[in-house]
């Protein structure tokens, strides 16, 4: 079953085109790595999927009309009010909001679920601290707990590991991997590091304003489009894909923003 089907999605901010005719489908149970240089439209694409931006053109079909309760989203960067008087625990509990209707009450069971989820993502220790007083990495674990607490069918993560140290990154990915394998949770993960995700991802999407490639990992490794796009860097990527060494998105591939401003 396809959870997402996108057809010819284009998007422009104040007349500047950032996505052009993007079409793809996302199969249930896959772990898709969405990669692309800075400013290539990755965040824009998932904001369209999530309904955070209005669809300007193209067609987008999700597995159901109101997917909120089956959806987990971890944003690239959140900026809560500096004085927000909310503990880490209360932030995690917030993740259950989508499962409630009408007058919302959290029962004992919910509180237990939240505490357990905090143990799972390793942030139980600071459950009673104010969220805004935690470090970037600690905040990220709390937000991951909030994302996972409603047992989503689809999890969308936007560069989730930038604030984490390497051991935390490892356990972060292991946790997602467990969900993917044991509960068939579908994962769409935006990342910069191709090799790091290579160990886990089953599918790849390469975006650079247009969709350069979309397919399984095997197809990715043998794709001509990928080879053309990455040029001399392709071999480097393929070498790293199955190793543990990091392999950031090649710096020499300029994004369209640069290309178009240079052209002007």
């Amino acid at each position: 079953m396809n959870l997402i089907e996108a057809k010819n999605i284009s998007h422009a901010y104040r007349g500047q085109q950032v996505l052009s005719k993007v079409s793809f489908s996302l199969k249930e149970g896959t772990w898709t790595a969405l990669i692309g240089p800075n400013g290539s439209g990755k965040t824009t694409l998932i904001k369209l999927i999530l309904g955070l931006l209005p669809l300007q053109s193209g067609r987008l079909t999700l597995w159901q009309k109101n997917p909120a309760s089956e959806l987990g989203y971890l944003e690239q960067k959140i900026t809560p009010p500096r004085l927000m008087p909310l503990t880490a625990f209360e932030v995690v509990k917030m993740g259950l909001l989508s499962t409630k209707k009408g007058f919302k009450i959290f029962n004992k069971e919910d509180l237990k679920t939240a505490l357990n989820m905090m143990r799972t993502t390793n942030c139980f220790k600071y459950r009673n601290k104010l969220f805004t007083e935690l470090s970037g990495g600690q905040q990220q674990r709390v937000l991951l707990a909030r994302t996972l607490i409603n047992k989503p069918k689809l999890i969308i993560l936007d560069e989730p590991t930038t604030a984490l140290d390497s051991t935390s990154r490892e356990s972060f990915f292991e946790l997602l991997s467990k969900l993917n394998k044991e509960q068939n949770t579908t994962i769409l993960l935006i990342t910069h590091d191709i090799a790091e995700i290579g160990k886990y991802a089953t599918d790849f999407m390469v975006l650079d304003k247009e969709l350069i490639f979309s397919g399984t990992k095997e197809e990715f490794c043998s794709s001509e489009a990928v080879a053309n796009y990455f040029g001399s860097y392709t071999q480097h990527i393929m070498d790293h894909l199955h190793s543990e060494e990091s392999c950031p998105f090649p710096a020499h591939i300029h994004n369209h923003e640069h290309a178009s401003t240079e052209a002007k």
Binding site: L50, L52, A68, I78, M94, K104
Partner: peptide
């Protein structure tokens, strides 16, 4: 709960 979530993180509230 909606107001608290919206105040904390409006995008999250929307996706919820």
């Amino acid at each position: 709960h909606e107001l608290v979530a919206m105040t904390f993180d409006e995008n999250f509230a929307k996706t919820a």
